[in-house]
Design a protein around this nucleic acid. Sequence first.
DNA 1: CCCGCACATTGATGTTCGTCAATGTCCAGG
DNA 2: CCTGGACATTGACGAACATCAATGTGCGGG
Lengths: 254, 254
Amino acid sequence: MSNAADPACLCGKCTSCVIFNRSVCHVASPEAMAQLNRISHIRKFARGTVIQGQGEASDIVGNIIEGVVKLSSASANGDDHIVGLLFPSDFFGRLFAEESRFAYEAVTDVTLCAMNKSGFERFLIDHPEVEHEMLKAKLDELDAVREWAAITNGHTTMQRVATLLFVFSLRSRNQRREPGDQSSNPVVHVPLSRRDIADYLGTTPETLSRNIQTLARAKVIRIINAKHFELLNASELVRHSGESREDLERIAAR
Amino acid sequence: MSNAADPACLCGKCTSCVIFNRSVCHVASPEAMAQLNRISHIRKFARGTVIQGQGEASDIVGNIIEGVVKLSSASANGDDHIVGLLFPSDFFGRLFAEESRFAYEAVTDVTLCAMNKSGFERFLIDHPEVEHEMLKAKLDELDAVREWAAITNGHTTMQRVATLLFVFSLRSRNQRREPGDQSSNPVVHVPLSRRDIADYLGTTPETLSRNIQTLARAKVIRIINAKHFELLNASELVRHSGESREDLERIAAR
DNA sequence: CCCGCACATTGATGTTCGTCAATGTCCAGG
DNA sequence: CCTGGACATTGACGAACATCAATGTGCGGG
């Protein structure tokens, strides 16, 4: 830490960061990266932890190193809706606002590259090239959120379920298999509970369960356990989603 | 135009722009504003014009001076969904991407302060303070889109209809009354067709119409004509929306 | 001024989905 | 190993909504 002032020395954590080249950090100059090294620190949150409550003053931002975070909004009548999911390399927190409009909750155990919000805001002002990258990331995110909204809005529950499963299958393509998995089919890992999936898709756990079972009976998927599915027939799953394969690829890529 | 190089001379259109202090331009320095003056030009589009098609190369960006633009996404099965509406002072177009994910269509006659996309992108790189403002605007927009997604997702059609009407009533608060309007009640102007509203709310024109008529029969609104409604009982409308008044105010403010 | 067309409304009907309730399953802790 | 509790599934039913079809309304062009 004491040698962070030397731009040439990058002995900090950023150089070995697993999400480095997918996060906004990758455009930072050596000098900027040294500064990021100084103001950031790794924090871990256990599954279920509310990292930031809805409407609370937001003081921590950063990048997700590992795990999944859900962004949810509880309305007056009590039911809450998941308006977004954050994965490794996604930016966490709400910059340039007093408080966060949404709650951030760790869906799995989460590792965060955390920074003080105002500290990072000052860093961005001093480093327009990083802020530029942040803008591009947020523009992409905006498209993705709108696209997802279009899907949840106008499709049947089955189409939404199929879409989610296929998108998650693309996302977990390169992940290691479940231990003991003998088959050559892809395994889809959905780290959310049925309730969370239902909240994300705008339905109920019951209806969701029925649709999953229907897909299983149709031999499109095989239910390994509550959070793992074997993908038996990808093209059938795409057909059930009502989307073109290209659109699904794009959604998964984000 | 020839004296645009003189930073002190702001004889261009920006100084008299009606949306100036609500758009990102308002943080521009005199020098930057002179440059904006040079690269921007007013363009008008008739109601119904597709300003930019879905998936088309995007070459024009800018601010909306007057009118309403809808952002829509047509899925493979043909039905399209409105994923956003743009009002005066909103930024138009998709920066830093080859093509636009969504179609932009003029819902009313539209006046645009248009700029060449790559020209404005270069401007932003040269003027980080404006890019910073753009980032803040997009972060706000992201929250607004997520919030709207939460509303359309988890509520009944009646709640969505009531929410839309109330939000539009707040937006048109300061607009002039329809000619011949004698009452002291607020008049809500919704410049969209029934089909567009239905697409925006994720329902059908038929169901939408039934809900509007139900609100009229309950004396919550009075239907002046297809696009104008007299607001008879605001608190009842809020009750039907299922949202708190504060949330609705925030959504309308954006 | 009337006609025709697009748009809005209304009606009838079937399907999907949410709700309530019961049962099944998995895992952690005693 | 057994037990309790959280979570997932299944069933039965009704309400909300999409769909199809017909009718009404308003507006611009001949």
